[in-house]
Simulated assay, not measured.
Amino acid sequence: MILPIVAYGDPVLRKKGKEINADYPKFKELVANMWETMYNAHGVGLAAPQVGLPIRMFMIDTTPFSDDEDLSEQEQKDLDGFKKVFINAEILEETGEEWAFNEGCLSIPDVREDVKRKDTLTIRYFDENFKEYTETYDGLRARVIQHEYDHIEGVLFTDYLSGLKKRLLKGKLANISKGKVNADYRMRFPAQKKGR
């Protein structure tokens, strides 16, 4: 089932997610619904807060990036079919050079900005079968993980922008929270009047 994606301005996007265990209600159904929601919106990542749930879970599938001809053959191979669910994730370390990449977010449609992040991360997490892993990723895989991880920490990519950029985007972000935006997927807007 395709779930509505929560728009910028909803308090759930600012909550630090709570850990969950295998007894989480309708867990398998939630995972399936989140995959369906993400693919329907043409996303490469989706975090539980984006569907209104303040829990520590996100998923990514970087396959769409694997077509990028600017990337090396190895990078394309790394991105192709890289599909994972991350539960109760904790980034243990971020290292390497900071680099800028143009990011967007399903909760903030029509806004894309360059964000600087470190190149490499080590993360501990559980998969959808609650098997534990500690792994290191770099490049675009790390970037997508960092972006989604921020969601379970109550952080949005716009938080990384300069004061000037934030001021320039203020009106656009206010309009998004009111539903004055064209998204080609279902959304839930916090500032939309009820009963319209």
Rank of each mutant, 00 (worst) to 15 (best):
V155L: 09
E90F: 13
S107V: 04
R56H: 05
E128S: 11
F65Q: 01
A7R: 06
M59N: 06
Q76S: 08
P4N: 03
T134N: 08
S107M: 02
I176K: 00
D150C: 00
D110F: 11
Q146W: 04
H147Y: 01
G171F: 02
V181R: 07
I20R: 07
K83P: 05
Y185M: 07
A41N: 09
K178A: 06
F130Y: 05
R186E: 14
A7E: 03
D68K: 13
E153V: 06
L53I: 10
G195K: 10
T122G: 03
T120S: 09
D10M: 11
P4G: 05
H42L: 15
E132C: 10
G17F: 02
N88S: 04
F101T: 13
L161P: 04
R186F: 12
E93V: 08
F101E: 15
N88F: 05
R124L: 13
E90Y: 13
D10T: 09
N102I: 09
V144T: 10
M57V: 12
G163C: 01
T122H: 02
K193V: 13
I20S: 00
P109R: 04
L13F: 03
A183K: 10
N33P: 04
M59P: 05
K26V: 08
Y137G: 07
L164Q: 11
D119G: 08
Q76F: 05
N88H: 06
E75S: 07
N129I: 12
T122I: 11
K194C: 12
L79D: 03
K15Q: 15
L173V: 02
K84I: 11
V85M: 09
I108L: 05
Y24L: 02
E29Y: 10
H147S: 01
A100W: 11
K180H: 14
A48N: 03
N175P: 12
R117C: 05
F189T: 06
W99D: 05
V144D: 08
L156W: 09
F130E: 08
